[in-house]
Amino acid sequence: MEGLLFWFCGSLLLLGGVMMVVQRSAVVSALWLVFAFLSAAGIFAVLGGTFLAVMQVLVYAGAIMVLFLFVIMMLQGPVMDGERRLMHPALWPLIAAPPAAVLIMLAGFLRGDRMVGFAGAPAPGFGSVVQVATLLLGRYLLAFELISIILLVALIGALAVGRGERKLPWK
């Protein structure tokens, strides 16, 4: 069952990613990315992270991608029409090298017998809201508080950038 779900969600995730890169229109790209994120939520669910799967749908596929779509549709015209051209064709072999290396590496992994299996099914309650929240507000409390500072800084930064030509209060 886990195998079936893994192959289903994994292939959909890869499909979404590839289609996002291939599509020329930014709106269509964003919609394919939403599709990819929903598939990733499925992968999290297969891995036992039910809470993560819910957050992936709410935060990524919901909030972040809505922000992206909002901006894309706000900046109409040249942004919506797609790209005149992609990267200069002469540079293509250059960027093909690292992907080729990675693919060869992955092929080696899959061929060998050194697969690391999971030790049985996850313990009951693994990845549940209770367990994640206990860690979040216990062992990782400092990181949890620090992340709120990152969000605050991002909020202030986005406001400062978005003010445009107008004078900033501290100038």
Binding site: F44, L52, V59, A119, L151
Partner: peptide, 21 residues
Amino acid sequence: RLHGDAGGHVFVLMNFAVAAS
């Protein structure tokens, strides 16, 4: 999942915040 420790899930949540910022 490999280690049976949900600490990784906590850091995925941190990553969500970083991605949002």
